[in-house]
Simulated scan of single mutants.
Amino acid sequence: MSDTATPKPRKSPARKRKPATKKTTDRAAPAAREVSPAVEADQAPVALIRVPLSVRWRDLDAFNHVNNSKYLSYLEEARLRWMLGVPGQGLDDHVAPVVAAAHLNYRRPIEWPAEVDIELFVERLGNTSVSIGHRIVDAKDDQVLYCDGNVVMVWIDRGTGRAAELPVAVREACS
């Protein structure tokens, strides 16, 4: 046994809280987000592209199915192919798209060999962003759903890093 005593945990000093104060600013309230009429709940989403892809052996993990990280690569490939069809590809010297969020629901494993289709569609069209819904399905039977979800892409000002208006070409491609 050791002769040294176990040190007692130290209490952190109590912090005084400042009373809440109401801040007033001259800034106007943020504008309401614009939603494309084509993506309202009662209408079918705007289809962007359907991209066929072959599952590669190197996409497999130790469980002999496509690794979850590869699904993101498949979606990226489909988004890039869609953007190649957008005039100016939605970027220029001033603005460029970035992925702000990705949501994937893994519905069933993809085994090798397989041919899949990646479907992209507009879920929501905003002032500075677009939510692109996706489905990864079997190429021969689109009722076999491997993955669904969405990716939010935000266009940013390259100089400031802040959100920028969607380019007109992107807005038109999503409508």
Rank of each mutant, 00 (worst) to 15 (best):
L72Y: 04
F63K: 11
L104I: 14
P19S: 06
E111K: 11
N68Q: 08
A14Y: 13
V35H: 14
V55I: 05
V152I: 11
H103Y: 12
S73C: 12
G133C: 10
E76V: 06
T6S: 00
Y74L: 09
V35K: 14
D92S: 04
V116K: 00
R17E: 14
G133K: 03
E123Q: 09
R50A: 07
N105T: 12
W82L: 00
A5S: 14
I49A: 07
E111L: 03
H103I: 14
P97T: 01
A163Y: 00
P13C: 04
D93E: 14
A47L: 11
G90C: 03
R171F: 01
T6M: 03
C174Q: 05
T6D: 02
F121C: 13
H134C: 12
V130H: 01
A44R: 11
P7I: 04
F63W: 13
P45R: 00
V46K: 11
R124C: 06
W112M: 09
A164W: 02
K140Q: 14
M1K: 06
L120I: 09
G161N: 06
S73W: 06
P30Q: 03
P167G: 04
A96T: 13
N150P: 09
L166V: 05
A20W: 09
S73M: 05
E40Q: 12
E165S: 15
S131N: 15
G149T: 08
H94L: 12
L48T: 04
T24G: 03
N68K: 09
P97V: 01
V130Q: 01
R108T: 14
A62R: 13
T25E: 05
K16C: 08
I132M: 05
N105Q: 14
A29H: 11
R124G: 03
W112G: 07
P109L: 00
P9Y: 04
E76R: 10
S2I: 01
H65F: 00
E165K: 13
V99G: 08
E34F: 12
D42T: 15
A96F: 07
A102Y: 07
A32Y: 06
P30F: 02
D138L: 05
K16F: 03
L48C: 02
W57A: 07
T4N: 10
